[in-house]
Amino acid sequence: MSAYIQGRNVNLTFRPPNRRPVRALQNFDIDVNEGEFLSIVGPSGCGKSTFLNVLLGLAKPDSGDIMLGGKRIEGPGTDRAMVFQEFGLLPWRTVQSNVELGLELKGVATETRREVSQRLIEMVGLVGFETHYPHELSGGMKQRVGLARALATDPDVLLMDEPFAALDAQTRDLMQVELLRIWQEAKKTVLFVTHQIDEAIYLSDRVMVMTKRPGQAKKIFAIDLPRPRDYEMRVTREFNDLKLEIWNELKDEITSR
């Protein structure tokens, strides 16, 4: 049986005009099961965002196959949603209106949109900021709007590009718990890019370490910690052994320049 998300020999080279081409993904392979929580860690610039963009249908690989639920990914679709690394909020829309963007594009009625956005705005802790514009928000607040916006359309596949990077440690912990709750309740498939090994272990079923650019899958770690995960797990022997193992794998990619 083939996996829910399946990438085989994916190659992608950026060719910016008047510059050297940059090879972002080389023979990249990946298998993700339906309902799985998979984290990706790898050095900066190794092609993580690029791969998520391929899955989202915004970037076309030069060669290789990339399948979702048995169908080749040809372009964007509402079965997938991304939490963008650079937020991508529309500056002329308020928090509420940004959260509702996807629903609006789907043609969902105003009342339903309001209900969904209000629930998510509560969840990400932005009550009272519904009518604020992005320029009036802190980085962490913007990131939470991006998170709420991606969740609003209730996608099957959630692509998260360092979604908690701009958050303070406490908010990050809360958001991790919320994300796990949503993932478990709604049975979503999550691809989660992060630079925090702790976070990757704490959340995931499996953690993939990527090589430096051009990005390749280097090694995959199965995280067999029991669920539901709790905060104390982070101080267990098992957790820290995993952390060390993953760090050792990653370290070589970062230092061998």
Partner: peptide, 22 residues
């Protein structure tokens, strides 16, 4: 911002949506 175009496209926005919303 190209990113905003991509955001709207990724959410199933049509050509018309790109014009009206971005």
């Amino acid at each position: 911002d190209r990113l905003l175009i991509n955001v709207v496209r990724s959410m199933g926005g049509t050509e018309k949506d790109l014009y009206l919303k971005v």
